[in-house]
Design a protein around this nucleic acid. Structure first.
Ligand code: FES
Ligand code: FES
Lengths: 163, 163
DNA sequence: CATATAAAAGACAAATTTATCTTTAATTAG
DNA sequence: CTAATTAAAGATAAATTTGTCTTTTATATG
């Protein structure tokens, strides 16, 4: 009937863009390795988080430019997070660098801006959700996420072993 | 440097797709008019919510097929919500019909599925946010949103009067 | 210095989402 | 029945996001 292509987003699991999802997963993986003092190349990153390698490479460029991840070219090079950065980097920095701040600042139903003095009908409801999201993003560190993965309690892809 | 086009989503105010944002705004507007016993045409809808008319028409087709909004062709036709539906329709029905359930079911960082037994590093944090979102969507009725607009406290576009 | 390695950069291509335009079908009024 | 009106349907087109490939640059090592 001509509108099937609108319905039901293909980019499932929205909230963040694919680019941002890859960026978060990659950062966490790099963090797990950096905590063990190991640099990783883009190939390993993509394999470990199950993402398209060239696209992931592009995203890494954003993260290195943003100073979130450090990179080194040449033999023995790769990506790493400094021990100090590991503790200080918050999830919000990654999201900000890739998707910007619209997810926690923009109006939930697309008004050009979200404002208290000219609120949309869902403003009050949305505000609570965005505030919870913002709090989560600003308080969660790369380190705690990496620790969870290192401990084996949390995972960066499905079918870790056999795929 | 070749990756500017990745960075900073153009579709600001994510969470929902544009289609879904328009769908919600349109539904609320139609509800405000239906509560006054008035049918509205697609032209009025698009003007009132500041959305592209043909695209909005497509979205209305989804909503009518889904039984959320009623439509009538011909002279004096247009869109309306029955008085009974006004009270029973929840926001989640609109979101489900247009974007599907990924926003409150999918993994926050893109694992193929969100699961308790194989959680991603942000699973616990995200769960809370998605639960709040889901509660909001399942409890908010079209009627209460329409009432807010009718009372003048909430708005469906910016620059209501002069644009 | 020459070579190998690995990220950065740039150009391009595919997929998805958003937007537009034209034609068709249904309904009301005269 | 005819004309006018309005949504539905269908076909395209534009914009954006996602994904790929090639070339360049930086670095370490022999
Ligand atoms: S105005 Fe819509 S969420 Fe604030
Ligand atoms: S597994 Fe990622 S949010 Fe549940």
């Amino acid at each position: 009937m001509g509108f099937e292509y609108i319905c039901k987003k293909k980019n499932k699991d929205c909230m963040f863009s694919k680019a941002c999802e890859y960026g978060i997963r990659a950062s966490i993986f790099i963090a797990t390795k950096s905590s063990e003092g190991v640099r990783v190349g883009i190939k390993d990153v993509a394999k470990e988080i199950d993402s398209p390698e060239p696209f992931t490479a592009k995203i890494m460029q954003i993260l290195t430019k943003s100073g979130i991840i450090h990179s080194a070219k040449g033999v023995g090079g790769g990506f790493e997070v400094s021990n100090q950065a590991l503790r200080s980097i918050k999830l919000i920095q990654i999201v900000d660098a890739i998707d910007g701040d619209s997810i926690y600042k923009g109006c939930g139903i697309g008004l050009k801006e979200c404002s208290e003095v000219h609120p949309c009908p869902v403003h009050n409801q949305f505000k609570k959700i965005r505030e919870l999201l913002l709090t989560m993003l600003t308080t969660t560190t790369l380190e705690e996420l990496a620790l969870g993965v290192n401990s084996g309690d949390f995972h960066l892809k499905i079918f870790s072993q056999n795929k």
